[in-house]
Amino acid sequence: MNVADTTRIVCALVLASGIATAPLAGRVELGLLALALLVTYALERPGSRWLASRVGPLVLGIVALLVPLWLTGDVARANRLALRAFAAAWCATLILSQLTLPRLAPALRALGVPLALRSAIHTLVWQLEHVAEEGRRLILARELRQARRFGPEVLSELLVRTAARAERVDLALRLRGVHDPSARSRYAYGALDVATLAACLGLGVALHWLGRSAP
């Protein structure tokens, strides 16, 4: 589905909110929910490995949270909560599956998220890569010196090194006049964006309306 990142984020929020707070009492609603799950899968078509890596932990988390309810015998409500949680997360995760980490901060900027939070997210994303890279370098250096490969002191050293590198790179960026690295992208919205948003909104409203009008 070729829509703007901002549309993806808003659609995921709208659809997840609609599903997560819907009563889900009747068969029509359940049918509509199943349709939403299938449609989001058909539109995004994520790889099976990606899907397993996201959905596996998600299912485990939901089950762990709802075990107490199942144990106390409130099975029907636990099942309904589990279905709602799974459906909301499934739709949100699939809609956001095409959004990559470096594109999050610019999209949040376009949505009006304050600079302080945006820059924190941007730096976090940028540093994730650096932490991994510095970690590999540190471990390699220790192996070459035949020192112990891993320990608490390695983590502390990794933090200090990565922070020092981040400071250097950040200062270099500022000296070049880059104050807000997330201010690069501009989004062009088309009919598909409007249609996707309208569909998500319509589905959320329909789920609520059906739930409230159910006997």
Binding site: L115, S119, A120, Q127, V131, T162, A163, A166, D170, L171
Partner: peptide, 19 residues
């Protein structure tokens, strides 16, 4: 100040916490 240099260090620590 959101554009101050401490942001880089905050981001590094946040990346560690995320991991």
């Amino acid at each position: 100040n959101p554009s101050a240099r401490g942001v880089a260090f905050s981001g590094t620590l946040a990346a560690f916490v995320l991991a």
